[in-house]
Amino acid sequence: MSRDTLIVRVAQILLGITLLGLWELAAVTKWPDPVLAKSPGQTWSFLVKSASSGQLWSNTRATMTAVLIAWVLAGVAGVVAGVALGLMPRVERVLTPYLDSANAMPRIALAPLFIVALGINTSAKVALASTLVFFIVLSGARAGVRSTDAEWLRLSIVLGARKPQLFVKVLLPVATPAIFASLRLGLIYSLLGVVGSELISARSGLGQLIAYYSSTFRMEAVYGILLLLAVIAVVLNQVMGLLERRLLRWQPPADR
């Protein structure tokens, strides 16, 4: 570890301790409100209890299952649609106003619709999360395909490349970094969509637990689950980052 990294790590740990201290201080002084003021210790003991009862595990699994299903389905659909639109500018021009307005819609407003249509189950969560992931990956894949250098195509054609070869050997590799970046972002948005849907109505999942505990004023439980969600988001992001570095070794470090 270089000296710079060491300094950064130490500063990060100190900042974390300070934040925990401030949280503890707020809990002790009952600020801003006795209902909200729960200490880190209370939060921790909730997490321990909930984990040992199996409640935390089963709800995390329910949430993450929906997150991954939505991410994979909408990710694949988004890549296919994005690459297709990137290669067919005329079709894209026809569809643009529809895609833009669909993407501009506050997606959480669709949750009640999906719940009515699909029921209070995993499908409704997956549907909502998919509407977020799809558009993110679509625009990433489209931008990726567009970033193809005309000289690469010109060279490949003269050297004898046929259409399918141009696609596999030039267009897809060109688009990979942008597709990857959008999949990474899409994973976080998938979590957002699933938890959002669960908050509105669900039988299980971390979002549903937050809704339940906040309605019964168990704020230490709410804080615990929020912390857990933050940890999940960070882990997902790190895993994607690792994969990305592995797959995109060919990029100069400044572009990674």
């Binding site: 060279l155 030039v170 990029q251």
Partner: peptide
């Protein structure tokens, strides 16, 4: 071409192989 048009996701060897691969 004026710009070498090497494909950035292929190492030097695989760039030389590119035309043969096509």
């Amino acid at each position: 071409l004026a710009r070498d048009a090497l494909l950035p996701w292929r190492n030097a060897l695989r760039n030389v192989e590119y035309g043969l691969e096509l």
